[in-house]
Design a protein around this nucleic acid. Structure first.
Lengths: 129, 129
DNA sequence: GCAACATATTCGTCAAAGCGTATAAGTGAG
DNA sequence: CTCACTTATACGCTTTGACGAATATGTTGC
């Protein structure tokens, strides 16, 4: 029982698309999202809540931090469209720029005052072992 | 230069999804849309205008009548998502019911007072030759 | 317990969008 | 030109949603 209207409403906002783009395949901490998008923390939080209500993302608590990840809808059709959308975003220059900034931030979090003690995304942690 | 936000906003409304579902692969007259959805004519017209602004449909005038059809966006990613969305809608019971009512209305437009002289969809015209 | 930190929610305001009613615009028939 | 018909738009109203600022909630360490 999936609701297409709610699903597409969730995708109909630039900030939310940018968030989904940054989550991509991997879980990511809210503090990175705030830092990369350069938008107020409450704004990011509200959009994440919207995405969660729409069933597009899930959250996991890790001490003080919250990690968000994309969750593929049980509905096959919705899942396929979501995957397609992520691939589509991948081709946009501004979305590529966001991901590029994320990589940089992960490599040297000390440069970003707000990220000095932030937990790295899983993929970066694996790479740096 | 396609705008994902606008595109998804266009898909984020139940009435518009129903309209797209009815247009499917074929052009269709506004009067049928009004009749099948059982919604006020101005409402339908407004949603069609929204879809047109978003670049998802195009209109063709035919005397007093206006025929709308889905137009695949030039952007490859958007086109693919739109196609998948239509296929997804195809699986919904309520959407199937809409299409079923459309077929019935086309077969016996006389039953629908408002459709007595309405132009048939192209595919029905071909079948009835 | 408290203080510091990360995140979520509330509040007030504003713009966007949905709706029904009424009306305008475009077309064809007479 | 006028009337009948189809579709589009304007108007007023209500709801939704986006935003920043302030505040609340939840966690860790002391």
């Amino acid at each position: 029982m999936f609701n297409p209207e709610l699903f597409f409403k969730a995708l109909g906002d630039r900030t939310r698309l940018r968030l989904l783009n940054l989550m991509g395949e991997q879980e990511i901490c809210v503090c990175y999202l705030v830092e990369i998008l350069e938008q107020g923390q409450p704004k990011i939080s509200r959009h994440l809540a919207y995405l969660r209500r729409a069933g597009v993302v899930e959250a996991r608590r890790d001490g003080k931090w919250m990690h968000y990840r994309i969750v593929m809808p049980a509905d096959k059709g919705a899942a396929q469209i979501l995957r397609q959308t992520l691939a589509w975003l991948n081709e946009e220059r501004s979305m590529q720029a966001d991901r590029s900034r994320l990589s940089k931030a992960c490599c040297s979090p000390a440069k970003y005052v707000a990220l000095q003690s932030a937990p790295l995304p899983v993929s970066v942690m694996l790479e740096s072992r």
